[in-house]
Design a protein around this nucleic acid. Structure first.
Length: 506
RNA sequence: CGGGGUGUAGCGUAGCCCGGUAUCGCGCCACAUUUGGGAUGUGGAGGCCGCAGGUUCGAAUCCUGCCACCCCGACCA
């Protein structure tokens, strides 16, 4: 008896080792790293802090891009492209901006290498640039320098431009997808005649992001504003969406900034308004990055691998044939051909994995690891009975269903899975968003049940900083739809009119 | 930059204290048998033991120097 139990444990251990994914409970951050690598999303590169996004991971980014791009265009934006390099002097024109980014800039100082005569390739000291170039950490400066030439009159406004690009921020500590030295993103940069219009734009784009993350990533978010401490360098107001990961830590999933006239003033971008008066242009910028892939992985996955929402899954349905002889496979393949055509007509992506180099069990495990939402297994028994085995990734349940009407059922199931994943995440977020009224309780919850803590704050940067120093929790945001209520700051006891959201964050 | 740790096959590792040309698992290749939850057997390929120097008849092992990476902290609109 005891031996049998030990054997069972041993078998589990061996399975875990071969799959190579540490459990979520055991070590959340190791679990996350393992998943990214084992699910073939990305790998480490020879350059510290930079990663190689592999085809499977990149195809998720492509899907995100495709959806967001449509959303941007539907709200009137157009795409353009600005240089990777920014003259060093540009960065320093906006004081807060340079303050925020100076410490994480990659700098280009030379433009040529040469052979030193001993077989070594060295930087050619004679090829020093007159002015150093910064590899963009974000593009406000070069874009606003450009906008100066595009804008003379209110008739030239608004300018609603987005760019898909890579940026570099030399962070000290990096994490796959969540914070890498180089990352891919989109950055919108708009110019407006009035503050009101710019604020409307800022809020509109925040809502676009929130809709996208909730409906496509199946991840509920809190929409809010950042406090002054957490604001983007150079912004008057930073709006954000904050999501909660399964370990109770918050992740900023997107930001939209109201930049006021800061960049227009720094780059001297003036226009003549309807009253024939010169004024500075009002600005916004907004962005989401490949960090969203990290959010997607962290939010839904389990110890068996990724759990991808159907709407963003590169493969929505995988078909695994089970056969002993070639003619059985041909028989199954003939049926699958029809099924595939039906599914494709419904815009559902299907992979028929008929590799004979891997056995069915290995394929099952592989697609679970990769988070494919639905798996169809078909063997000779099914072909005789007119059935298939249908397994869903989110619940890990299997059922035998009729081949008749299968594509309709699959279509409905994919929708159901999308909803189910969202509801599960919503439940988690709701259960882990807790109102706290004392500092002791606040600290206890951070250690025992981390999540979003809704608490009163006296509104001062000093208090915010002290709480951060003492607990590592930061104010994630002041929710936009916040109810106003009288209360006392959890740290100082001073009066407060509303609660704000605290959490430890990535 | 401070504290700690690790470098051995594609990956994960044993060997190091006590010197004799490297162990095991996964993966890879071939063949056969298999295929409804991660197959089995037989055979095979693959190693500047992080780099450089030293001690020694002989170094993965001992000594010196260097390099790289990882973890914790600082940092992270």
């Amino acid at each position: 008896m005891a031996a049998a139990i030990i054997d069972a444990v041993l078998i589990q251990f061996i399975k875990y080792m071969s799959k190579g994914v540490v459990s979520k409970e055991e070590d959340y951050s190791q679990w996350y790293n393992d998943l990214v690598i084992k699910a073939d999303m990305a790998e480490y590169s020879p350059v510290k802090g930079c990663m190689i996004i592999k085809p499977y991971g990149y195809s998720i980014w492509e899907k995100m891009q495709a959806v967001l791009d449509v959303m941007f265009k539907e709200t009137g934006h157009v795409n353009a492209y600005f240089p990777l390099f920014i003259p060093k002097s540009f960065l320093s024109k906006e004081a807060a901006h340079v303050e925020g980014f100076a410490k994480e800039c990659a700098v280009v100082t030379h433009y040529r290498l040469k052979n030193d005569g001993e077989g070594n390739i060295i930087v050619d000291p004679d090829a020093k640039l007159e002015e150093e170039l910064i590899v963009r950490p974000t593009s406000e400066t070069i874009i606003w320098n450009t906008y100066r030439g595009w804008i003379q009159s209110y008739r030239d406004l608004p300018i609603l431009v987005n760019q898909w690009a890579n940026v570099v921020r030399w962070e000290m500590r990096t994490r796959l997808f969540l914070r890498t030295t180089e990352f891919l993103w989109q950055e919108g940069h708009t110019a407006h005649a009035t503050a009101e219009e710019a604020i409307v734009e800022t809020e509109q784009m925040l809502n676009v992001y929130a809709d996208f993350v909730e409906n496509w990533l199946a991840l509920p978010v809190i929409r809010g504003k950042k406090t002054a401490n957490e604001r983007f360098a150079g912004a008057l107001d930073t709006y954000c969406i904050e999501a909660l990961m399964q370990d109770g830590k918050a992740l900023q999933a997107g930001t939209s900034h109201f930049l006021g006239q800061n960049f227009a003033k720094a780059f001297d971008v003036k226009f003549t308004n309807r009253e024939n008066k010169l004024d500075y242009v009002w600005a916004t910028s907004w962005g989401v990055s490949t960090r969203l892939i990290g959010a997607l992985i962290m939010a839904h996955s389990d110890d068996a691998g990724l759990v991808l929402p159907p709407k963003l899954a590169p493969i929505q349905v995988v078909v695994v044939p089970i056969y002993k002889h070639e003619e059985e496979l041909e028989n199954i393949a003939a049926y699958v051909k029809g099924l595939t055509a039906e599914l494709k007509a419904k815009n559902i992506s299907v992979k028929f994995d008929k590799r004979d180099t891997h056995r069915p069990g290995a394929k099952f495990a592989e697609y679970e690891l990769k988070g494919v939402p639905l798996r169809v297994a078909i063997g000779s028994r099914d072909m005789q009975n007119g059935t298939v085995e249908l397994a869903r990734r989110d619940t890990k349940t299997k059922e035998t269903v009729a081949q008749e009407g299968l594509s309709v059922k699959i279509e409905a199931l994919l929708e159901e899975i999308q909803q189910n994943i969202y509801q599960k995440a919503l439940k988690f977020k709701t259960e882990n968003t807790i109102e706290v009224d004392t500092y002791d309780e606040f600290k206890r919850l951070l250690d025992e049940q981390p999540g979003f803590l809704s608490a009163h704050w006296d509104g001062t940067p000093e208090t915010e900083q002290q709480i951060k120093d003492e607990t590592k929790a930061t104010i994630r945001c002041i929710p936009l739809d916040n109810k106003q209520e009288e209360g006392k700051c959890i740290l100082t006891g001073k009066p407060s009119k509303q609660r704000v959201i605290f959490a430890r964050a990535y």
